[in-house]
Design a protein around this nucleic acid. Sequence first.
DNA 1: CTGAAAGCGCTTACAG
DNA 2: CTGAAAGCGCTTACAG
Lengths: 345, 345
Amino acid sequence: MVKIKDIADKANVSIATVSNVINNRGRVGEETRKKILKIIDEVNYQPNEIAKSLKLNKTNDIGVIVEDISVFNAPEIINGIHAAAEEKGLSILLTNMGLFKKNGNQYPEISKCKELALPLFNQLVSNQVEGIIYIGIHSRDITGLIPDSKIPIVYTYCYTKNENDYSVNYDDEGASYQITKYLINKGHTQIGLISGLINSVSSYARFQGYQKALSEQMLMFNPQFVKTGDWQYESGYRMTQDLLNQENIPTAIIAMNDLMAAGAIQAIKDNGRQVPNDIAVVGFDNRELSSYISPRLTTMSLPLEEMGKKAMEILDQIRNKYPVNQKKYRLGCQLVERDSVYSLE
Amino acid sequence: MVKIKDIADKANVSIATVSNVINNRGRVGEETRKKILKIIDEVNYQPNEIAKSLKLNKTNDIGVIVEDISVFNAPEIINGIHAAAEEKGLSILLTNMGLFKKNGNQYPEISKCKELALPLFNQLVSNQVEGIIYIGIHSRDITGLIPDSKIPIVYTYCYTKNENDYSVNYDDEGASYQITKYLINKGHTQIGLISGLINSVSSYARFQGYQKALSEQMLMFNPQFVKTGDWQYESGYRMTQDLLNQENIPTAIIAMNDLMAAGAIQAIKDNGRQVPNDIAVVGFDNRELSSYISPRLTTMSLPLEEMGKKAMEILDQIRNKYPVNQKKYRLGCQLVERDSVYSLE
DNA sequence: CTGAAAGCGCTTACAG
DNA sequence: CTGAAAGCGCTTACAG
């Protein structure tokens, strides 16, 4: 690798002068500047960022810890982080816990997670990253997972109970409210809900949004219309069967994710009914499959890329000691209309 | 951050001695060793990797350039890279071209790609990575995209014409041969093929595999059975309609990816026929949607994670100047049987 | 306008 | 067994 000394020798100047022209500081004569610039160009000199980092005590690296890069939310969030980082001249040190795979597709206990996260955290610290973004696999509480330290950290797709921690998530309740309202506007008054696991804050918040939309429109809340699934296709299928076997059958079903929505659609078809004509189905997440099942699924799109961007921007502000007016962020979701909802009016 | 000097002061020894105990080199008295170790533990000392890197001229960082992290193949490949890197104590500097998004979901020309890749490449070089893995979006020739340099680089999910370059891909022809043979073994003799774009080497190789299996089994190759799509759902749908409108209708259809297979299934259903009872459909890629469409799609699973691992292992060998016996690798695909194929026997 | 020198946090011959 | 010193490639007061 060619270094600053090589340039200096070639130009018959000191390394200080070369450094000055590279960084546009100090007074340098126009002649020498040109000469040096020419040489730099000729030899395609690339400054050694490692040396700069050591000297300036500033790496321009930020670390990301992702709980599992194979899970659908990770790539888009990383995409957003990368886009924002690029703008700020920051590099990304990527680290993956592989939580799902290492634990038979089950979400491990917090203590197990800690074991997996700690070495990655230390690795990042050793590499002198200027901040860390932690990407969760679920919107869940991970208080205490990452040890306290002076290094700035922002959590996304998860959160902590610590009021000093930064986190960026999406607005579960608002999204659920929005999609319920959408169904109501389409004339639906009997709306089934297939929730995720009940120990999930997302399930809870989305239930709240559902109820809020109902009561705002003076619609009766019917407890028989809400069934609890486990986020998987099969549970969507089964819970929909339950819904279909009741006296009152909903005209629309909200599944709290696309997988369960796909199961719901299949159950409805197997029951001899049509989607959307007999029963509308709506999902959550806007995963790839939602465009390819039949009918194409109307669903809520998560602001994944935006979450990544936002997390990076906040991190950059903390890093630069800008005042950050807010610690917990919730970004809005967007409805994507496809073919699984029929208007009753 | 606590540094080696702080430890030395606390222990009343020189920094050289501290360094020696940290790295287990040189003779150090048992007493002093213990004392130093204790202090290191107490203050939770983490060595500054940046300083080590500069001194040792060795960063233990490897760079990855991914053409688009939002594309389905990227996360699993990165997963594999990360797993192998972790074993070797390497960190990953991740870089994303965002090729698709920046170009309206079209694959840009090679010169445009170059423009996007070069700054990322330089960034990685500046950061003194010890090698680079380049992850393509398609199995395609990207000769000349990355400038020549002494830094080791291995290409995956793409390749170059340069015989000195390393690349790891999967075995298109073998996979296609395998799945065709599978269909034949199930009693199918009239097998349709919906290919991807014809300028793709994957399309060509898969066509070869298809033909090879046919001729090995003394089956007539019927040119009317092969249709050219463009990898998208819609084209799978249309090409299947064409197939269905011909005199001879195949009893099985191979689509060269899952998206087109999904389109094929829908076309068959809309035509009033059943999958798999009337016509079997088989895909390629094993993307998420293949588990959730109806019927669940039998498809070829790509060895994505293995490709990432392999790429990392090769890179590590080059980096360590091990003799690498081979430059171009092709990993095998695996058939995943689900519900879209019916046995005729 | 230009350069000599110190120093970032480490490692490593070498001397004692 | 232990430590003083040089040096990795840079930047930055400071002196001239």
